[in-house]
């Protein structure tokens, strides 16, 4: 196999391990943006706003909230660790496929143009 192919494969394996395994050790605290958006409100145990004024009050439903992978879990998988890990693996594969596809198309377009000009 070519040297570059090995590099891409090892990079993908690293990404799969990070998204599939290490992701289970990630912090579940609100992130930098969330914590600013939540400032001024009080929340109950289920994260519903119970009072106050904050940016998060106007948060609206996402169009993709019913996706089987919404919230980085695979619907139907009861085990949290497995659910998060599988969603991460699917995400890495999907991003590589979509990204690779976009860049392949962009490259293919350039090649055609060069041929026409030649």
């Amino acid at each position: 196999m070519k040297k570059s192919t090995w590099f891409i494969l090892s990079g993908l394996i690293a990404a799969l391990l990070l998204a599939g395994v290490v992701s289970n050790f990630a912090s579940s605290h609100p992130d930098g943006l969330d914590s600013v958006a939540r400032e001024g409100c009080t929340f109950d145990a289920d994260d519903n706003i119970t009072g106050g004024t904050c940016m998060a009050q106007s948060e609206a439903e996402n169009q993709t909230k019913d996706s089987p992978l919404a919230g980085y879990g695979l619907r139907g998988v009861g085990n949290d660790v497995l659910s998060t890990g599988l969603s991460g693996v699917i995400g890495v594969v999907a991003t590589f496929a979509i990204g690779g596809g976009v860049f392949w198309l962009l490259r293919a377009g350039t090649r055609d143009r060069t041929k026409q000009n030649a």
């Binding site: 993908l12 990070l18 998204a19 992701s23 992130d31 860049f103």
Partner: peptide, 29 residues
């Protein structure tokens, strides 16, 4: 660069799942 750019996207997706704590009760990635 085609597969390399795809790998960069996939790797960023993976690392964005890894929230680390920066302050009490606040994380980031």
């Amino acid at each position: 660069l085609v597969p390399m750019a795809g790998l960069v996207a996939a790797f960023i997706f993976a690392v964005q799942m890894l929230n680390f704590q920066v302050l009490p009760g606040v994380s980031g990635h």
